[in-house]
């Protein structure tokens, strides 16, 4: 089954800090719009992937995470485009609405676990897409909603202007990713996170220990829903247009592939690494001229990662192995030794 390795003992904090600093300095190093937008979009996916990984930690395999992105995205898009709200309240409300939807769906659907849960979330994902496609009066159907940009924020001598460049979006995404990562990391460390793992690893034992399985599953699903909704809202506003096909079943599958390839051993590191690497890889592949080669290589990479980094350890495990083998020059990393 899954093993949960904590890399904070393996990788020096300074290195992680350096990486974070580098990411923060990216807009100063390069102002290339396409580089920035790749980073922003992979950050947005990272949030959704973290949500998926949290749900997966309770043992449920959700194939409908893109639906919550769609709910969040459409909430804020409708509020800003059709009702004239400004970005920030709409953004927050998107998270709330998506979380509420996740709560209601979870209360009903999480009762049936396993593959049935996956199929039901898959169906809901398609239902949301079809409704968004056909409810022309509200969502403008396949033509898509044009979302409003956030208003400029005056800061004395300086103005944060979302219209002129992607840099404010970059920092907004970094903040949101950092906040999500912090919340999820705290959840993973806390009693709640351990309960999630317990519910997944041995539901029968967990239930006999007095844990109400539904409670933990619904909590994980709702928290994931809130953050996925925020990510969806940001996605819609960053891309300035939201069409139903942008968030469908394929995006759900993409989220789960990013999660598994990144590694489900950690709630934060795996999703971030997985989504940044796979998204960047995917968007560089689209520049190739040959039709179909990007999908072919994408699929091949997914399969190769699963073949050579088995059991969901994923790419995040490479990071740990790199430090234990190359830097520490140890043959095998033992959990017990590192904890001493």
């Amino acid at each position: 089954m899954m093993t949960y390795i904590d890399y904070k003992d393996v990788v020096p904090k300074a290195v992680i800090g350096l990486v974070v600093l580098l990411i923060l300095l990216v807009p100063i190093i390069t102002t290339n719009e396409s580089t920035l937008s790749i980073l922003i979009l992979s950050g947005i996916w990272a949030i959704a992937v973290m949500g998926f990984t949290l749900v997966l930690r309770t043992g449920q395999f959700s194939l409908g995470q893109a639906a919550f992105m769609a709910i969040g995205g459409y909430t804020s898009a409708i509020l800003t485009a059709q009702m004239g709200w400004s970005f920030w309240p709409a953004f927050l409300l998107a998270g709330l609405v998506s979380g509420l939807a996740a709560f209601l769906v979870g209360m009903v659907v999480l009762r049936v676990g396993g593959i049935y849960f996956s199929i039901i979330t898959l169906s809901l994902c398609e239902v949301i897409r079809i409704v968004a496609q056909q409810w022309e009066s509200v969502t403008r159907g396949a033509r898509g909603l044009i979302t409003a940009q956030p208003n400029p924020i005056p800061l004395g001598f300086f103005e944060i202007n979302f219209f002129s460049s992607t840099v404010p979006y970059f920092y907004l995404t970094v903040c949101l990713v950092a906040f999500t990562a912090l919340v999820f990391w705290r959840i993973g460390e806390s009693r709640l996170g351990r309960s999630f793992a317990g519910v997944a690893l041995n539901p029968v034992l967990a239930e006999h220990q007095g844990m109400y399985l539904m409670k933990y599953r619904v909590i994980a699903f709702t928290v994931a829903g809130v953050f996925t909704g925020l990510a969806g809202s940001l996605y819609a506003h960053f891309l300035t247009v939201l069409t139903p096909t942008m968030l469908g079943l394929w995006q759900s599958i993409q989220i789960l592939i990013m999660s598994i390839v990144g590694g489900i051993g950690s709630l934060v590191g795996g999703p971030i690494i997985g989504s940044i690497l796979l998204y960047t890889f995917g968007s560089y592949l689209t520049r190739l001229d040959i039709y179909g080669i990007q999908q072919l290589l994408f699929g091949a990479v997914v399969v190769l990662v699963l073949l050579f980094l088995p059991k969901g350890t994923g790419l995040v495990d490479l990071w740990g192995r790199f430090w234990t083998k190359v830097i520490w020059r140890e043959k095998e990393f033992e959990m017990d030794e590192a904890e001493e």
């Binding site: 789960l256 179909g292 080669i293 999908q295 699929g299 091949a300 990479v301 699963l306």
Partner: peptide
């Protein structure tokens, strides 16, 4: 699921 992309691309 990864093979879906692989075969469609191929």
């Amino acid at each position: 699921m990864g093979l879906i992309f692989f075969f469609e691309g191929a």
